[in-house]
Computed example of a mutant assay.
Amino acid sequence: MKNLALFDLDHTLLPIDSDHEWGEFLVRQGVVNADDYQRRNDAFFAQYNAGKLDPVEYLEFALGTLAGFEPAVLRDLHGQYLKDVIAPAIKPSAVALLRQHQDAGDLVAIITATNAWLTAPIAKMLGVEHLLAARPQLDGRGHPTGKLDGLPSHGPNKVVHMHAWLDTLGRPFDSFERSYFYSDSHNDIPLLSVVSHPVATNPSALLHQHASANGWPLLHLFDASVQ
């Protein structure tokens, strides 16, 4: 594998934020206190968009919610969420981009700030083997405890996670001829600045501005013409 291709998930490969939509799904199912949960969920989402999110605080809010359910109930909720929310959000244009890199023999991974419990099945639905995501601490049953295990995979920590993962494969970053990272978010500028081929994908206003100033290509993956 000569090349490395990394992808953010939310608003990059999906036209939604899977973490925020999970919270909205729980509210619709009536299994959380709607007013309090939605208020906090929306506040964290606004902080993320503004680049002011404390990732540990948010993750422990999200993971604490998971810990509050019995394992069987949580599995059923997650399955319904994947069917009702995620499956309809997977667009042919995103799948085609992934397949382009996979067919070229590139090493492909999704790297997301959203926790691995929520996103591992999404990566599988997209046909991506490698997922780098925030890891929930698990108890003896494999059930989330509500705590984070290790560093959040947010902002500059994505660079840390990438290098640690590549080390486990025995493939240092500089061994790749080309490295790509596709992301919509200005929070991902640290990793976008490290790869040889950054691609601002469905970019936020702040990332669009930064990408334009630095000559990075812009990709609008969910325009009607490419879906």
Rank of each mutant, 00 (worst) to 15 (best):
A205W: 08
N157I: 07
V199P: 00
P92N: 13
G140M: 15
L53H: 01
D8W: 03
D167K: 15
P136K: 12
A96Y: 08
V27E: 09
D103W: 11
A96S: 15
R141D: 14
M125W: 12
A120H: 07
E21H: 14
G64S: 09
Q102G: 06
P190Y: 09
A89T: 10
K147F: 04
W216V: 04
A89Q: 00
N214S: 09
D10I: 05
N3R: 04
D76S: 13
F69L: 07
V31F: 13
L219A: 09
A87W: 12
A113D: 06
R75Y: 02
H197Q: 15
A72R: 08
L206V: 08
E60C: 15
G140C: 11
A89E: 11
N33E: 10
A94C: 05
P172I: 05
A133E: 03
L66S: 04
M1N: 09
A87P: 10
P71G: 11
P55R: 02
H11Y: 01
A211N: 10
L192I: 06
T65R: 06
L107F: 11
H101D: 10
Y81H: 03
S204V: 09
Y81I: 07
W216E: 02
I189K: 02
P88I: 01
N202K: 13
T114A: 09
A213R: 11
A5V: 15
Q137W: 05
G105I: 10
L98D: 11
W22Y: 12
G127A: 13
L26A: 00
R99V: 10
K124H: 14
V73K: 14
R99Y: 01
G64Q: 07
K124G: 05
E177Q: 07
R171W: 06
D36W: 11
